[in-house]
Amino acid sequence: MERVTKLSKIIVITSGKGGVGKTTTSASIASGLSKLGHKTVVIDFDVGLRNLDLILNCERRVVYDFVNVINNEASLNQALIKDKYTENMSILPASQTRDKEALSKEGVERVLNELSETFEYIICDSPAGIEHGAMMALYYADEAVVVTNPEVSSVRDSDRILGILHSKSRRAEMGLDPVKEHLLLTRYNPERVQNGEMLSVQDVEEILAVPLLGVIPESKSVLTASNQGVPVIHDQQSDAGQAYADAVARLLGEDREHRFLDVQKKGFFQRVFGGKA
């Protein structure tokens, strides 16, 4: 089945490894794109372990989910949830009760086709691993944001996912232009990099050889935001929120300098009172 309109872009947020910040990133990138006026939907592919709806604070509004739509038990309109904070944004939640095999290739394709008639950006939040759920999340992607933490095992898993994007995605199988790859380094802690406890941006860039979309610092604001159910990109006072806004701008083609890469010199008040930015 060929997609009817090809105006929409499918972007997978993937990593191989779990707990690196895929869901956090999916929520913020989707919110960032829609804040800039782009009609965006974010899909939770983590069937059985949904938490995108928690980060977006819409878990109590979930009636039907992605699997229901695939099984024709509900229409897309019944399953899509409108985001609380941004216009132009919808969420397609994952099922908590099924297993990942419920995502059939044909079913996913049909849903993506239908979504691409309405939405400009389709963000796919991938589960961890390289099993069926992760494969389905990346298979139809036009672009991929590979979320990586600055440590060896995460970098190795990202490398693996990049190999899979290059050989097993729909674009690879059909001999189309390759999936456009972006590296997003998250949970970056310049102090620990300086102490040699973590890989530096340069180390990771050199190993993965993929253009850098952004560096998101390790930040308390992420946890605060997720506890409140507000994607951190809405907190433009925070370093992580600003870094995500930069990443979204770069995704849209803007050239922005990378920030938050160096150890912050403590200001007078921080030195005196020991507070943290």
Binding site: R156, D159, R160, L162, G163, I164, H166, S167, P178, A209
Partner: peptide, 8 residues
């Protein structure tokens, strides 16, 4: 011409 990745 493209990187050979882990697992390939």
């Amino acid at each position: 011409t493209t990187p050979v990745r882990s697992g390939q």
